[in-house]
C-alpha cells in the first residue's frame, strides 16, 4: 500500500513537471496547423519549416553566441573574484563577497531595465553585445558562488607547493589552480550557458535588430499558436537537455569518485 502510494506520488510529481514539455514536444509533430487535440501526426513538416526560416536559425545562432560568450566572460570574472577573495584577506572582503552575490536576488526585469537606462545614456547601441553584458551581470554572481564554494585548503597547499618548485603566479594559476577547480569551473560554465540560453526579459530589453531565440519565439507568439512554435520549443529543449547531460557525464560524474 505504502509503496503504491509513493510510486503514485512520484508519477504525479514528475507528471506535473514534465507534462507541459511532453505536450509541447508531441504537438510539434502535428500535421495540421493548430497544436491542439486531436493529434493527427506524426509529421516533421514543422521542423522542416522552422529550419528553413532564416529568422529562426539566425536567432538560434545568436542565442548560442550570447550564451557561450557571456558564460565565458562570467566564468573568467567569477574565477578571478573567487581566487582573489579566497587567497587574500583584506578589510572589507566579506562586504565585497556580499556585493558580488547580491545581484542574484535582483529580478531580471530590474537588471534589464537598469542596464537599458545606463546603456542608452552611455550611447551604446542595443545589440547582441548588450544582451551579453546583461547575461554576464546575472551569471557572474552564480559563477562566483559556485567556484568560490569549491576553493579550499587543498588547492591552496598545492599552489604553495608549485611556488616552492619555482612556478610564477601565472603558472600557479594555469597549471594548478584552474585544473584543480575544473569541475566547479565547468559546472559554472554550463549552468551559465543554460540560464543565458533561455533567458527572455533581459534579451528582450537589450537587443534590437539581431535577437535571441526566446525573443524570436515571443514575437512569433503574437501571431498566435502554431506547431512551428512547438518545433522551436522542442529544439530549444533538446539543446538544454544536451548541455545538462554533458555536464552530468563529464563534470559531475567525476565528483562522485
Amino acid at each position: 500500500m505504502r509503496t503504491i502510494f509513493s510510486w503514485l506520488y512520484l508519477i504525479l510529481a514528475f507528471g506535473f513537471i514534465y507534462l507541459p514539455v511532453v505536450v509541447l514536444v508531441l504537438y510539434s509533430f502535428q500535421e495540421s496547423g493548430l497544436p491542439v487535440p486531436p493529434f493527427d501526426g506524426p509529421s516533421l513538416k514543422w521542423y522542416d519549416d522552422v529550419l528553413r526560416d532564416s529568422d529562426v536559425t539566425d536567432a538560434l545562432t545568436h542565442s548560442l553566441l550570447v550564451a557561450v560568450g557571456s558564460s565565458v566572460v562570467a566564468v573568467i570574472f567569477g574565477f578571478l573574484a573567487a581566487y582573489g577573495l579566497a587567497r587574500y584577506t583584506f578589510s572589507g572582503s566579506p562586504f565585497i563577497r556580499l556585493l558580488l552575490i547580491a545581484p542574484l536576488t535582483v529580478s531580471y526585469l530590474i537588471v534589464g531595465l537598469g542596464l537599458l537606462i545606463v546603456l542608452t545614456r552611455v550611447g551604446l547601441g542595443l545589440s547582441l553585445v548588450t544582451a551579453g553584458i546583461g547575461h554576464v551581470v546575472i551569471n557572474l554572481p552564480l559563477a562566483f558562488a559556485i567556484i568560490f564554494a569549491s576553493m579550499n585548503a587543498k588547492q591552496e597547499n598545492a599552489e604553495r607547493a608549485a611556488r616552492d618548485l619555482g612556478a610564477t603566479e601565472m603558472r600557479v594559476i594555469f597549471f594548478v589552480t584552474v585544473p584543480m577547480l575544473m569541475p566547479a569551473i565547468a559546472a559554472a560554465f554550463f549552468l551559465s550557458v543554460t540560464l543565458s540560453w533561455d533567458e527572455f526579459i533581459i534579451s528582450f530589453l537589450l537587443t534590437r535588430f539581431d535577437i535571441t531565440l526566446p525573443v524570436e519565439i515571443w514575437s512569433m507568439l503574437r501571431s498566435g499558436l502554431s506547431p512551428r512554435l512547438n518545433a522551436i520549443g522542442s529544439v530549444v529543449f533538446l539543446i538544454s537537455v544536451a548541455v545538462v547531460l554533458i555536464l552530468e557525464f563529464t563534470v559531475l560524474r567525476k565528483r562522485h569518485l
Binding site: 587543498k154 597547499n157 598545492a158 604553495r160 607547493a161 608549485a162 597549471f175 594548478v176 585544473p179 584543480m180
Partner: peptide, 8 residues
C-alpha cells in the same frame, strides 16, 4: 609538506 600537497 605534511599533507604531501601533490597535484591530483
Amino acid at each position: 609538506f605534511q599533507d604531501y600537497a601533490l597535484f591530483p
